[in-house]
Simulated scan of single mutants.
Amino acid sequence: MQHRHFLIHKPHGYLSQFIYEKKRHKKLLGELYDFPEGTMAIGRLDEDSEGLLLLTTDGMMSEIVRSKTVEKEYYAQVDGVITAEAIARLQTGVEIGFKGIRYTTKHCEAGILNELPDYIGEGRRIRDERHGPTSWLSITLTEGKFRQVRKMTAAVGFPTLRLVRVRVGTISLQNLKAGAVREVEHFSLPGAL
């Protein structure tokens, strides 16, 4: 069987799944594109997060992408003007809660973003200037605990207001607008065939 692979720029408000069995209606990935049967999201972005999501009909790809060798880069808009001290703390690891226990995150790359690329788009309106300043930073991880980036920025005193995954390994969100889907022949990732 020939597997199929897709890149999607998941908009805010969508779940990273195709089936939702609770009573309240949620927006699902299948509403954005007619994916073939057996398509699954590799990893997840929570409903409030946006950005690059990889989908495939090949279950083995999930293990490769979720491995600790594949970097995931996020742009986070945070509440307040983030400090160099907070960035340094993010880089060296911070303590967060995960499954009821305390966990110290691994070293990561983090830095202030002075300018956002166009493909990030406006996104949903977070708030206006009356509520104080915000800033953007880039965080690159090789791990992915539940809501990790949000927990990390909150741990250093700068809660995340908007979160966009912009890169998985060498695959970038570049030139993919919110809601767009692109089928690709294969994923160019370490360990992928």
Rank of each mutant, 00 (worst) to 15 (best):
141 L>F: 01
4 R>T: 09
37 E>K: 14
40 M>A: 02
103 Y>T: 15
72 K>E: 11
113 L>W: 06
13 G>R: 15
2 Q>C: 04
155 A>V: 00
10 K>T: 07
104 T>Q: 06
155 A>L: 00
111 G>M: 04
97 G>E: 15
133 P>E: 15
11 P>D: 03
144 G>D: 01
168 V>M: 07
160 T>D: 11
82 I>E: 08
33 Y>K: 05
122 E>W: 06
114 N>P: 00
124 R>C: 02
11 P>E: 08
19 I>N: 12
89 R>M: 10
93 G>W: 03
94 V>N: 04
141 L>A: 02
110 A>S: 07
67 S>D: 12
176 L>H: 10
146 F>D: 06
136 W>I: 04
130 R>P: 04
171 I>C: 03
177 K>V: 05
77 Q>R: 07
126 I>K: 10
138 S>C: 06
143 E>M: 00
43 G>V: 10
13 G>M: 12
189 L>T: 11
6 F>K: 08
40 M>K: 14
44 R>T: 11
153 T>H: 00
136 W>H: 01
74 Y>D: 03
190 P>I: 09
188 S>G: 11
4 R>F: 05
136 W>M: 00
94 V>L: 08
160 T>L: 11
38 G>Y: 00
83 T>C: 08
79 D>E: 13
101 I>F: 11
123 G>Y: 10
18 F>V: 08
73 E>M: 09
179 G>D: 09
157 G>C: 06
16 S>C: 11
121 G>M: 11
138 S>Q: 08
2 Q>D: 09
83 T>K: 03
12 H>S: 09
124 R>H: 15
16 S>K: 07
173 L>I: 10
21 E>A: 15
106 K>P: 08
7 L>H: 00
126 I>P: 02
82 I>G: 05
60 M>R: 08
173 L>G: 07
14 Y>C: 02
186 H>Y: 14
85 E>P: 04
35 F>C: 07
61 M>N: 12
142 T>K: 15
184 V>C: 05
49 S>G: 14
79 D>L: 14
115 E>F: 09
97 G>D: 14
183 E>S: 10
106 K>I: 10
56 T>F: 03
28 L>E: 01
137 L>C: 00
